[in-house]
Amino acid sequence: MYKTQAEAQEFLKGFVMELEDTPEEREVVLCVPFTDLGVMSKSLHGSRVRLGAQNVHWEDSGAYTGEISPPMLVEIGVRFVVIGHSERRQYFGETNETVNLRLKAAQNHGLTPILCVGETKEQRDAGETESHIFSQLEEGLVGVDQNNLVIAYEPIWAIGTGDTCESEEANRVIGLIRGKLSNPNVTIQYGGSVKPDNIDEIMAQSEIDGALVGGASLQADSFSRIVNYR
């Protein structure tokens, strides 16, 4: 929940300039608050940066005050949507069942969902990392098309804490996630205190295809350094 429309446009001015030498095959997606989507869609038109939302409801319309439907996102040029982020699960009652409904609804309207999975500190300490993530995948992916999907592994204990999951451990868990998929070519990202000073090491790992970036995406210079990892 960052950036007014004016702040988002100001960010974009500095950010887009830093992408001139970014390799063509590198996908860049900004997932912004709902109020920023309209103005960002216009500002990004014709650029290489894709637009994403941070959540979506599973119905096309209805008595769901405060929610946003897939057609509302599609109409303004949104291509991606984050689903099941740990903060949605922690603070707003998101479950594997509602995640599954949102994933299918997004895909039915041509949106590419970014499914977030990951464990808490308590679950990791109890040795439940794998079983917890596997259940998130098993219940979340029922009836979901894995040819139009991105998965983000975000160990909750490493989000915003500065306590980054070791890149080798992130790579191990992402490899396990990949082994549970019917499509091994699904893009799998790592998220959790991704910063300019650790992105090169993270992206050097064999199983990690990208990064889901939180706090470090709020400044144009730090996020562009992450996008332009070496």
Rank of each mutant, 00 (worst) to 15 (best):
P70E: 13
Q205R: 13
Y91N: 15
I114A: 11
D21F: 05
V32W: 00
S167M: 08
L149N: 01
Y153F: 12
S193R: 02
R172E: 15
A152P: 00
E168F: 05
I133R: 03
I133W: 04
N198H: 07
E139I: 04
V99Q: 10
N147T: 12
S41L: 09
N183V: 08
G110M: 13
A170Q: 04
L176F: 12
H109S: 09
T164V: 12
P23N: 07
Q136L: 06
V78L: 14
I133K: 01
L181T: 01
D145M: 04
T129A: 12
P33F: 08
E154L: 07
S222Y: 05
T120C: 09
S41I: 04
Y153A: 01
S47D: 03
G66E: 10
E207M: 00
L176T: 07
R172I: 06
E169K: 10
L181M: 12
F92N: 11
E168W: 04
G179M: 14
V227E: 12
E169G: 01
G140T: 03
N96S: 11
S206N: 14
T112K: 13
N96C: 13
G52I: 13
D209C: 08
A152E: 02
R79K: 15
N96I: 11
I226N: 10
E94V: 05
D197C: 02
T120P: 04
V186Q: 07
I226Y: 04
K104F: 06
R88Q: 15
F134P: 01
K121Q: 14
Y2M: 07
A158K: 04
H85R: 09
R225Y: 08
Q107Y: 05
G38R: 02
Q90L: 15
G38P: 00
C116K: 06
T129I: 04
V49M: 01
S224Q: 06
K195L: 11
T129N: 04
V227A: 13
L218V: 11
T161P: 03
E94I: 10
N96F: 07
D200C: 02
L12K: 03
N100C: 14
L115P: 01
V82N: 10
F223R: 08
V78D: 09
E169M: 10
N171L: 05
I159V: 14
Q205G: 00
T35L: 15
V213Q: 00
R230L: 13
L141R: 03
G192V: 04
K180H: 13
K121S: 10
G118N: 05
D60C: 04
E20T: 11
I83K: 07
E75M: 12
D197S: 06
E130V: 13
Q54C: 01
G14C: 03
I156P: 02
E59S: 05
E139N: 15
N100K: 11
L149R: 02
E25T: 11
H45G: 01
S182N: 15
L101H: 12
E25V: 11
E18Y: 02
T129E: 09
N228G: 01
V78N: 11
E168K: 14
G215S: 03
N100H: 09
N198L: 05
W157F: 10
V81L: 13
Q146H: 03
Q219W: 04
V28A: 00
A158R: 08
V81E: 12
G179W: 12
G62K: 05
I202G: 00
L176H: 03
T22W: 07
V82D: 14
I156G: 02
E119R: 03
D60N: 14
Q123H: 09
E119T: 00
S224N: 02
V16R: 09
E166C: 02
N100I: 11
